[in-house]
Amino acid sequence: MTVIDTHSPVAADTDLEFRPVAGYIGAEVRNIDLSQPLPPEQVKAVTDALHRYKVLFFRDQHIGHAEHIAFSRQLGRVTSSHPYDDEAPTEFPEILTVDNRDYERKFGIKAASYTNEWHTDVTALINPPAITVLRAHIAPKRGGDTSWTNLAAAYANLPDSLKDLVNGLRAEHRFGGRRPVWHAGSTYARKTQDNPLVTEHPVVRVHPATGERVLFVNPGFTTRIVGLSARQSDALLDLLFDEVTNPAYTVRFRWFDGSIAVWDNRATAHLAPSDVNHLDITRVLYRTTLEGDVPVGIDGNPSTAISGDKFVGK
């Protein structure tokens, strides 16, 4: 099998092709059929490409829940749908349904996505997901794109003085972040009050597979820098959030029915759409996540759980 990493035409029908789509992040994968088990060499090629490009895009993969889960299992241990989800399909408890028609009931808001903040999936956990697999079932005819940013590039391009400042810091991550978007009294407000998820992570983590240093903060979950005053913490977080959401490190993806995105949740943050909130659209996607490791800082110290247990797969 030949793996092509170029913009040249496809060499053969049996070859995987990875086409980079932005300067720092993202590649489209061609000549692959996710409805069937992948041979080991393709699993390795996809995994290696994921570590390099951080997010991979697949088109025209019209698969169901069973195939979605089976593909995810080839990349790691699949978890249940979400720490707060109790509505996963009975026969497919690994599937999280992302359906904008449910958001008013769950979150008390009417929008294409319950959060329009950049976030890394569930970093309030002691072991946030390693990989996320998201499949579009019903995509809107216009708009509804998702964006991703490369957190390793964000760290690498910091000035040395700022790297020295953040290298040894730790930050609190809490479900809902500094300003939860859901309404008081909503289903999610009650769930997060009854079972809070709170963890202290290193501000800079070391990626367990690549060894890269990653700026591991995000607006959706990171609430404060440990050891700083509230004013100092907010000022530094705002600066870091500005860095991780720099458009230079991002890629944007247009969904169609059958589109799939797979991202390295240890080295990216992503942004759900807000451009269709005023439109009467239906947007339905299905998500799986793979069990993650406990982040470790450059000083070798792991994250610390304040509230909540590990989220493990099977």
Results as ranks from 00 to 15, higher is better:
33 D>I: 00
258 G>A: 13
252 R>S: 14
196 P>A: 08
267 A>T: 05
222 T>R: 02
106 K>Y: 06
249 Y>T: 08
61 Q>H: 08
6 T>G: 06
266 R>G: 06
149 T>W: 04
48 D>R: 04
22 A>N: 14
233 S>Q: 02
157 N>E: 12
231 R>W: 04
98 V>Q: 12
26 G>I: 06
182 W>Y: 14
116 N>A: 14
46 V>F: 02
307 S>V: 01
109 I>R: 07
118 W>C: 01
31 N>K: 09
239 L>Q: 14
74 Q>W: 04
25 I>S: 00
57 F>T: 01
158 L>H: 04
57 F>A: 07
202 P>N: 01
297 G>P: 03
191 K>D: 12
50 L>V: 07
268 T>Y: 06
279 L>D: 11
313 G>N: 02
299 D>M: 01
289 T>K: 14
28 E>F: 12
269 A>Q: 05
13 D>C: 07
93 P>S: 06
193 Q>H: 14
63 I>F: 05
78 V>C: 11
51 H>L: 14
218 N>G: 00
62 H>G: 12
146 T>P: 01
219 P>A: 00
20 P>H: 02
95 I>C: 04
303 S>D: 05
282 T>W: 08
118 W>Q: 01
172 E>R: 10
67 E>K: 08
206 V>K: 15
122 V>H: 15
311 F>A: 09
314 K>I: 13
271 L>N: 00
12 A>Q: 13
9 P>A: 08
27 A>T: 06
239 L>E: 10
83 P>C: 05
2 T>G: 04
89 P>Y: 06
7 H>Y: 14
212 E>H: 11
220 G>P: 15
253 F>V: 10
45 A>M: 09
174 R>M: 11
282 T>D: 13
67 E>N: 02
77 R>A: 15
306 I>V: 15
183 H>A: 15
102 D>T: 14
198 V>P: 04
27 A>H: 04
227 G>N: 14
39 P>F: 10
211 G>E: 13
230 A>L: 10
126 I>E: 11
247 P>D: 02
200 E>R: 06
297 G>N: 05
97 T>S: 10
105 R>C: 03
75 L>C: 08
82 H>D: 13
212 E>Q: 14
124 A>M: 12
121 D>T: 07
52 R>Y: 00
129 P>C: 09
207 H>P: 08
89 P>W: 10
250 T>C: 11
66 A>Y: 05
151 L>F: 10
211 G>P: 13
266 R>A: 10
112 A>L: 09
249 Y>C: 08
227 G>R: 08
2 T>C: 07
174 R>I: 13
314 K>P: 12
308 G>A: 12
169 L>D: 06
112 A>N: 13
68 H>K: 12
144 G>M: 14
217 V>L: 07
162 L>S: 03
259 S>L: 00
189 A>T: 10
129 P>F: 04
81 S>M: 02
9 P>Q: 03
236 L>A: 05
85 D>S: 15
20 P>V: 03
50 L>C: 04
82 H>K: 03
237 L>T: 11
159 P>D: 15
8 S>E: 12
244 V>N: 08
38 L>R: 00
119 H>T: 00
68 H>A: 11
219 P>T: 00
278 H>V: 07
235 A>E: 13
144 G>D: 10
161 S>Y: 11
13 D>Y: 10
156 A>T: 03
16 L>A: 07
170 R>E: 11
16 L>Y: 09
265 N>Y: 12
61 Q>L: 03
254 R>I: 07
275 D>N: 04
231 R>G: 08
249 Y>R: 05
250 T>I: 00
108 G>P: 11
25 I>T: 01
